[in-house]
Design a protein around this nucleic acid. Structure first.
Lengths: 194, 194
DNA sequence: CGGCTTGCTGAGCAACGCTCAACAAGCTAC
DNA sequence: GTAGCTTGTTGAGCGTTGCTCAGCAAGCCG
């Protein structure tokens, strides 16, 4: 049916690393438009210009593939959120919160897809997401110099869910100024952890 | 392989309503153990003792089937949360919150599966969940006699996310007494909406 | 019994995840 | 330059799953 043997593609050979990166990249680009579970191997292979079989050479299973994609998305966000080295502790949470809002503003679609895909369905994917949240809680607890109790952990986690939802909603329909939003989030976190 | 034509099942014929209800019921029972997307038509049909084809007679598509299941789950919870008629308004939110905690305590697995399945993947299923949340926000705004602004709506929605996460965590590992939890949730909601 | 409604089935198609044996691109060794 | 090795790459094909369709049969009516 489809002329897969186009004459202008003389069988390009890539290094293993390159190919892997390319496939993950394609996954990242597809994420916003396609629910994770509906992402088909066929489609990814087609976009990469390779056969289905090759994808299974790099990722033994479909699940393995899209957990890799999810992890890549998480890493991108994490990298963006992390404070510049040397930032004084009391400014770290402040800055991360600010950058998180910026992240959601910029990559609204992608971020929503990430959160959705992570929360729903597959446990493996959910785990990647949970790791990220746990790391965020970790940072919050240490830089705010809070006691590392189960209670505090739960409160910060719940606050994260609160922040995520509010920022998502706010990005879709701004009901206050950006500084007001940030102040509100900080305020709630402050009250909760005291 | 499987002897599907057991002699002791002399082709039982059910009314359309009964069959539909049975199929949805099976879906509800399967939900806690099976991520929504992994729920296969084959399995459901097998448990119901019918052919795959019949399921497609009642639900034109798989999606239609498990949105029906999700909606049934949402209705069950909603029914449980609704205050008894005649309850004075100032006690309604109080009672619903209490019953919600109870609901999560009792059906932790099922509820988690519901939230997960709803948040993730399929937009149609997500819609069912969003409806429920919207209805909850509606009730909260009216019984608390709050102005129905976009801002208030967002805050209550975000608080719902907060409550959901905290209650879920707390049910898994109780870090405070039940009344303390309820008081905390009420307090946060109260501060937010003022 | 004949005829009607309607719950119900089996065969089969297309799409998808996944396997496997084999091909071939690019490098090194002689 | 050609023999040989490594390894990126493919095509054919299998099992499962969502979905279709033509037709069977259970129960009811006359």
């Amino acid at each position: 049916m489809t002329a897969s043997s186009r004459p202008d593609h003389p069988r390009l050979r890539r290094s293993a690393g390159d190919r892997r990166a390319q496939l993950v990249q394609i996954g990242l680009e597809l994420l916003p438009t396609t629910p994770v579970q509906e992402l088909t191997i066929d489609e990814v292979a087609r976009q990469a210009g390779i056969s289905r079989s090759l994808l299974f050479h790099y990722f033994a299973t479909k699940r393995e593939y899209y957990t890799a994609v999810t992890r890549a998305a998480a890493d991108l966000m994490w990298e963006h959120l992390m404070p510049a080295p040397g930032t004084p502790p009391e400014e770290q949470v402040e800055g991360m919160l600010d950058r998180y809002v910026g992240w959601v503003e910029t990559f609204r679609e992608t971020h929503l897809a990430f959160v959705r895909g992570a929360a729903g369905g597959d446990p493996w994917v959910a785990e990647v997401y949970q790791e990220t949240r746990d790391r965020l809680v970790e940072v919050a607890l240490t830089t705010l110099e809070l006691p590392d109790s189960a209670l505090q952990r739960q409160l910060v986690l719940a606050w994260l869910a609160f922040a995520e939802e509010l920022i998502g909603q706010w990005a879709a329909e701004p009901t206050m100024t950006r500084p007001e939003l940030l102040a509100l989030l900080r305020d709630v976190l402050g009250r909760l952890t005291r």
